[in-house]
Each structure stands twice: as C-alpha cells, then as structure tokens.
Amino acid sequence: MTLALYDLVVSPFVEFGFMRRALIACLALALSSGPIGLFLVMRRMSLMGDAMSHAVLPGAAAGFMVAGLSLPAMSLGGFVAGVTVAVLAGLATRFTSLKEDASFAAFYLLSLSMGVLMVSRSGNNVDLMHLLFGSVLAVDDAALMLVAGVCSVTLVTLALIYRPLLLESLDPVFLRSVGSRGGLWHTVFLLLVVLNLVAGFQALGTLMAVGLMMLPAITARLWAANVGAMLAVACGVAFASGAGGLLLSYHLELPSGPSIILLAGLVYLVSLVVAPVGGALPRYIRARHRQL
C-alpha cells in the first residue's frame, strides 16, 4: 500500500530530472503568483490578469521570430509587450474619461491581434500551440532560474509595498489625502503581474499562466477571513494543484498545463460548495444564533 503510494506520488519525481524541475517551477510560481492573484482579486481586477496574459503574446512572438525558441528572447519580448500595454492603458485611463477596465480591454485586444498575426506569418501551428500552452515538462535549468528569480523579486517587492498596496485597494482616496502616490504602488504592482505572467508562460503557456494566478486566489477568498490566511491558502492551493497536475499528466499522459489548471479549477468548484467562509453550503446551513 505504502509502496504503491510511493510509486504513485514520489517516484516520478525521484526518477526523472524533468519532473523535479517542473515541481520546483510549480513551487516558485505558486509562491509568487498566488499572492499576486490575491491582490488582483481584492482590487476587483480578476479579469485583468487574463487581459495581461493576452497582451504578453506579441512580445513573446516577436522574440520567437528573432531568436526561435529562445527563453531569454521570448521572456524579454513578453515583458516589454506586457509593460507597454499596461503603460498605454494607464495613460489612457489617466488622460481620458475611460475607466481602467475599458482601456485594458482595448489595448490587450490590439496586442493580441498583433501577436496572432505575427505567429501566423512566421511559424506553423505547432509553434503557436507551444507558445500558447507551454510545457512545464520542458523546463530547463535556464527557465528554472528565470522562474525562481521572478519569484524572489516578486516576494521581496510585495513585502516592501504590502501596506500601501493593501491600503490603496481598501481606501484609495484616503491614501491620496495623506499624500501617498497611489498610482506609484499600482504601477509597481502591474509590473509584478506582467513579470509573473512572463515567468508562467514558459511553464504553462500564456493562456494558462493566469489560471495558476487566479484560481487559487479566488479559492482562497472562500476559505479565509483575513489577508494573511488567504495568502497562505492561495500559495498552498497553487502548489498542490501544480504537484497534483504534474502527477496526473505523468500517469495519464495528459498535457501538463491543462492538468494543473483543471485541478486548481476542481479545488475551486469544491470550495464553492463547502468552503467555511464564503462557500454556499455553510451559508445555507445556519447554526442557531447567539444571544444578544
């Protein structure tokens, strides 16, 4: 029994280097994408991650056209494209009457269409699939360093800007009234979002990177009542989905990216019903009320 469990859960990681690297990549992504996703959810920007993941595409495609399947080129391209969209959308929001979500929608669509155009002109569909859906099992040492580096930068930066970022989500007018520049923290945060999507797209693809960012974070809001606990739940769910998804893909010969995201999605679906803080069932079954 224990032996069977060992074969099922541990030995794939012991036997194969690519599985170990994939596991570590998932751990790093979980540690940084989880908190980033949670802040996106709390700032009511859940769909922004999705928009930004599309925005990253043309940069990655440009990198691919210049240097082939080169990680540094595609990452740099993706980062530049993501930041460009974020900055342009920010400027449009600041200087016109449009709201932030409208600006982001417009610019990410521009960016995405450019990306699809570039990919269709230069490569074949296999390349496009690789770009869109990634392959965590093909993570090499260089990619691992990138993911780990982004994770470290994200965690340190978040630790530094945690208080103003939270206060800006909670009460932006107050933050401005005490003379702090809310826009600055917002910008730094958007940079972190792009950085994490770029790190994630190598492992999971541009479209799936956002899944590991958002699903565990949304799930966390259902389980915990304070920010610290939510952060822990988000990271935990993200890593568990990553490890579980890898095993699923290994044993059942499924593509790794969708396995990981579907597992995270499954956790979310179950949480919708049973989670103690925000779930449907605990709300439905009411305990007897207390005395006044």
């Binding site: 709390m42 939270l166 989500s169 909670l170 009460d171 007018v173 107050f174 915990a224 920010v227 939510m230």
Partner: peptide
C-alpha cells in the same frame, strides 16, 4: 467613501491607518 468594505480588514486595522 470609496472604501471597499468587502475586503477582509478588521476595524482596528482600518482605524490604525
């Protein structure tokens, strides 16, 4: 007030800002 009261923040934390 543009305070987002759905955020998980305790009364004392808000006052201490």
């Amino acid at each position: 007030s543009e305070i987002d009261r759905s955020l998980p923040v305790a009364v004392l934390d808000l006052v201490s800002t």
